[in-house]
Amino acid sequence: MSPTIQTYSNESFHQIINHFAPKMNHYRFKGMVARTYIAALHFNENVGRAQQENKEGDLEYSLWFSRAKKDWVAKKHLVEPTFEYAVNIIEMALYMAKSNMKEFFYTADIMCDPGTIAGKLPKPDKNQFVSSLLSRFRNQ
């Protein structure tokens, strides 16, 4: 088994998720689910992209210096990603809106929002909390 190949597809998918739902932003549960669905659609549509060819019909490559290998490596130039899934989503949404097919919008209502950890605990009194924190550090 090759250690350099095993996780490539998984890492690529995580990179797509980070593109559609950056970690530095906070999203509500349903928004995060929707962004994950879109990332999966984008990844599935573009996972097998062909390598780009130049005018002469030769495959295109570029040279990159790998800090891990400490040597130059050739990277394939792939054809541009497609976004046909977005057109399909819009067409289906318009069709469903015109047809009054509300029964297909069930997933957003069925999903149970797990809530936040802070929402499950009662909020303490601020003055009491700060005084207990300060008294704890004074005794040390």
Rank of each mutant, 00 (worst) to 15 (best):
S2M: 12
S2R: 15
P3R: 03
I5W: 02
Q6C: 03
Q6Y: 15
Y8E: 09
Y8C: 09
Y8A: 14
S9F: 00
N10K: 15
N10D: 13
E11F: 09
S12N: 12
F13D: 01
H14C: 10
Q15P: 00
Q15G: 06
I16Y: 03
I16E: 13
I16R: 07
I17N: 01
N18F: 01
F20E: 08
F20Q: 04
A21K: 14
A21W: 01
A21N: 08
K23A: 13
N25F: 15
N25A: 09
N25I: 09
H26V: 13
H26D: 06
R28G: 13
F29Y: 12
F29C: 03
K30P: 05
G31S: 14
G31W: 00
G31I: 03
M32S: 06
M32G: 06
M32E: 06
V33F: 09
A34R: 05
A39G: 10
A40H: 03
A40C: 05
L41M: 13
H42R: 05
F43I: 02
F43G: 02
E45R: 01
E45K: 01
E45Q: 11
N46R: 10
V47H: 13
V47Q: 12
G48T: 10
N54G: 06
K55R: 09
E56R: 10
G57H: 07
D58Y: 15
L59M: 08
E60R: 13
E60T: 14
Y61G: 04
S62I: 07
S62C: 05
S62G: 03
L63N: 07
W64M: 06
F65C: 02
R67G: 12
A68Q: 06
K69N: 08
D71R: 01
D71W: 01
W72N: 12
A74N: 09
K76M: 06
K76E: 11
L78K: 12
V79M: 05
P81Y: 00
T82S: 06
T82Y: 08
T82D: 02
T82G: 04
F83Y: 12
Y85E: 02
Y85P: 01
Y85S: 02
A86C: 06
A86Y: 08
V87G: 04
N88I: 02
I89R: 08
I89E: 05
I89V: 11
E91L: 11
E91W: 04
E91H: 09
M92L: 13
A93Y: 00
A93P: 00
L94M: 10
Y95R: 14
Y95D: 14
Y95P: 00
Y95I: 04
M96N: 15
A97C: 05
A97V: 09
K98H: 09
N100E: 09
M101D: 11
K102D: 14
E103N: 04
Y106W: 10
Y106T: 05
Y106D: 13
T107V: 05
T107D: 08
A108V: 14
A108N: 07
A108I: 14
D109R: 15
D109F: 15
M111H: 06
C112F: 15
P114T: 08
P114I: 03
I117N: 00
A118F: 08
G119T: 02
G119H: 02
K120G: 00
L121M: 08
K123T: 11
K123H: 07
P124D: 04
P124R: 11
P124I: 07
D125R: 11
Q128I: 02
Q128W: 02
V130I: 13
L133T: 06
S135P: 01
S135Y: 10
F137R: 09
F137C: 05
R138Q: 15
N139Y: 08
Q140C: 03
